[in-house]
Write a protein that binds this DNA or RNA. Structure first.
Lengths: 335, 335
DNA sequence: CTGAAAGCGCTTACAG
DNA sequence: CTGAAAGCGCTTACAG
C-alpha cells in the first residue's frame, strides 16, 4: 500500500491539514510541529499524490507538446528547450506525436485537454484553418512553435521564414548565381510557402525569372534531395544553384550531383536550411540558415507558463532571430 | 467554466452514474438513454476529466520516460517507438531529462512517481548500484532501455553490447588489422565497458595485444572524435584502425585524419557504432553497428504496459538483435 | 497555530 | 437498466 497523507498525520499525531501545510511549505506552522511532520514523512517514505492535488487545485503543472515527429532532430532540440524551462518552473511535459495527420492532431489535442494540461505547445510547419479554430476554442492556453496563424490570434514564436529565405537568395544573387532551382516540400504548408515567397521576392527584385519547372517537390529528406537532383539533372534544364528546404535535402542533392559527375560547389551551388550539426563536417560544408531551435522552445515554454499562471490573455507573436551561415556549398562568388 | 459530468447528466436527464457508463462504454445501458446522453455530450462539448478519473481508478494511463538527453537522436528514436505503442494502448508519456546527473535522476523519478505514472522506462547507458536499488523499490513498474542491472532483477531490453563489439573487432581482425586504437567515453559506464570488453575478448582470442595507451577517452561527439584523433596522431604511436564509441566520434576522427593528411580507409580504418543516418551518406561511408532503437523502445513499452495491466511480477531481460553494417571506412581487407 | 469538514470530478459497488 | 452515495487523496476556507 502506498502511504498517504493520513498515514503521515497519524504518525506525527497531527491532522492532515497540518501535514498538507508543511508539504506545501505554507509558513504558519509551528517549528516543532513541522519537525515532527518532516520526520514522519521521512519515516513513512511519503510521496504526495500529484493527481489528487491537481484535482483539488485545478492545475496540473503539466504542459502538452504536440509535435509532428519527435524523431525529427529539429523539433527535438526545441523540446529540449521546453523541458529545461519546465524544469525551472516545476512543470512536466506530456508528449504527443501528430505525424502531420489532421485526425491525430485532433486526438492528441483531446487527450492533452482531458489530461488537464495547463498549457499546450503546438509545434509544426503548418496549421490548417480548421485546427486554428479548434485551438482558439481550447480550454488550455496555447502557444505555437515554428508556425503561426497568419492572423496572429494565437501566440507564437518562430523565425521570419520569408525574410530568411530572402536573405539567403539575395546572397546567392550577389554572388552571381542566376539560374535558381528549388527543392521544396511536396505538401504545401506555412513554412514551405513562406520560404518560397522569400526567394521569389529576392529574385523579383533582381529581375531574375524563376522557372516554374525548376521548383521541384519531393520528400524533404536525404533520399528526396537525391532523387530531386537526379531528376533535375536528367531533365537537361540549366541551373547553377539549388536552394533546398533543409540540410538533409541539400546533402542528398550534393551526393546525387557527385554521382552524376558534377562538382559542388564548382558546377552547382547548393544551400540548405536549419544548420544541422553534420552540415559543418560534411564535405562540402553546407551553406544554410540557422534557427535557434532551443531558444524557440525555451521562449515558447516561458510564454506559456506565464500565460498559465497569470491571466494575460492577449496573444503575442515573438520573432526569433535567424542567421545565414555561409560555408563552402555556396561560395561568395559564382564561378 | 468547463462542463463536467453533472452538466451532461442534467442536460440528458439522467444520473451522473449513467453518463459515466456511456462515456466508459459499459454495456448495460439502454440504447435510448445512451443516445440521449451522447447527444448531451455533444451539445455541451463535454470532455471527461482524466485527472479525476485517475484519482478514482488509481491508474493514469501515463508512462514516464527518464532519458539522459532528448536531443540525442539515438534516444529519440527509442522514444518514438515507445510513443507509437502508447498510442495503441491509450497511454501517454511524460518526458524527463536526467542529463546523466544522479541528482536529476532522483528528482525525475520522484516527480514521475508523484504524478502517478503507471510505469517508468529508464533509458541510459549507465545505471549506478544505488539507483538500481531506488528503482527496485519504486511503486511504479520499471523497464530499462539500453542498459541493464547486471543481476537482472529489473526488466530490460537492449542489445548485447559486448558481443556486438566482439563481432566488429573480429571482423577487423579477419580483415588483417593489427594495431587497434579505441576512442571511448570519458565516463566509464555499462555500455562503454561492455563494448571495450567485447573488443578485448576478440583481440585476446587472436593473440593481439591492446596497447593501453591506444585507448583514448574523450567526449563522444564529433569534436571529441576529432580531438582524440589529433592527439593520437601527434603521439606518433602506430595504429591502423580506430574503433569509436559511436558514428559521431568516427566522423570527427575521420576529419581529423584527413586534416593531418591521412586517408581513411587507405591509411587508417575507422569504425563507428549506432548507424546514424548520415553514416551511409558520409564520405567514406561508415562501418558501424546498427541497433534497432525504435524496436527497443516499442518492446520496452509493450512489456511495461503488460506489467502495468497484469501483475506479472518476474523481471525479464530481452536481448534485441544488432547488425554489423560493413561500409567503406573499414574495408574487408586491410591494405 | 491547528483541526474538522467540504469539495475537486470522477467510478462503482450496492440497492432497487 | 438506473440512481444515490461513498470514496479516490488531496487543499483550504472557516472556526477556534
Amino acid at each position: 500500500m502506498k502511504v498517504k497523507i493520513v498515514d503521515v498525520a497519524r504518525e506525527a499525531n497531527v491532522s492532515v491539514a497540518t501535514v498538507s501545510r508543511v508539504v506545501n511549505n505554507i509558513p504558519l506552522v509551528n517549528e516543532e510541529t513541522k519537525e515532527r511532520v518532516l520526520e514522519a514523512i521521512k519515516k513513512t517514505g511519503y510521496k504526495p499524490n500529484a493527481i489528487a492535488r491537481s484535482l483539488k487545485i485545478q492545475r496540473t503543472n503539466t504542459l502538452g507538446i504536440m509535435i509532428p515527429d519527435i524523431s525529427n532532430p529539429l523539433y527535438t532540440e526545441m523540446v529540449r528547450g521546453v523541458e529545461d524551462i519546465c524544469g525551472i518552473y516545476n512543470y512536466n511535459i506530456i508528449l504527443s506525436n501528430t505525424d502531420f495527420s489532421p485526425e491525430k492532431e485532433h486526438e492528441s489535442l483531446d487527450v492533452l485537454i482531458e489530461k488537464q494540461c495547463d498549457g499546450i505547445i503546438y509545434i509544426g510547419k503548418n496549421l490548417s484553418e480548421e485546427f486554428q479554430e479548434t485551438l482558439k476554442n481550447a480550454p488550455s492556453e496555447i502557444v505555437l512553435g515554428c508556425v503561426s496563424d497568419e492572423k496572429g490570434e494565437l501566440s507564437s514564436v518562430l523565425i521570419d521564414n520569408e525574410s530568411a529565405a530572402y536573405d539567403l537568395a539575395k546572397k546567392a544573387i550577389d554572388a552571381g548565381y542566376k539560374n535558381f532551382a528549388l527543392f521544396y516540400d511536396r505538401d504545401e504548408g506555412f513554412v514551405n510557402r513562406k520560404r518560397i515567397d522569400g526567394v521569389r521576392r529576392a529574385l523579383d527584385e533582381a529581375g531574375i525569372e524563376l522557372d516554374p519547372e525548376l521548383i521541384l517537390r519531393g520528400n524533404i529528406n536525404v533520399k528526396g534531395g537525391h532523387s530531386m537532383m537526379t531528376k533535375l539533372l536528367e531533365s537537361g534544364k540549366e541551373f547553377d544553384i539549388v536552394m533546398c528546404m533543409n540540410d538533409q535535402v541539400a546533402i542528398g542533392a550534393i551526393r546525387a550531383a557527385e554521382d552524376a559527375g558534377r562538382k559542388v560547389p564548382d558546377d552547382i551551388a547548393v544551400t540548405g536550411f536549419n544548420d544541422y550539426w553534420i552540415s559543418e563536417w560534411f564535405d562540402p560544408k553546407i551553406t544554410t540558415v540557422r534557427q535557434p531551435m532551443y531558444d524557440i522552445g525555451a521562449i515558447a515554454a516561458r510564454m506559456l507558463i506565464k500565460m498559465c499562471e497569470s491571466d494575460e490573455k492577449e496573444s503575442r507573436t515573438i520573432t526569433a532571430p535567424y542567421e545565414i551561415v555561409a560555408r563552402q556549398s555556396m561560395p561568395e562568388h559564382a564561378c
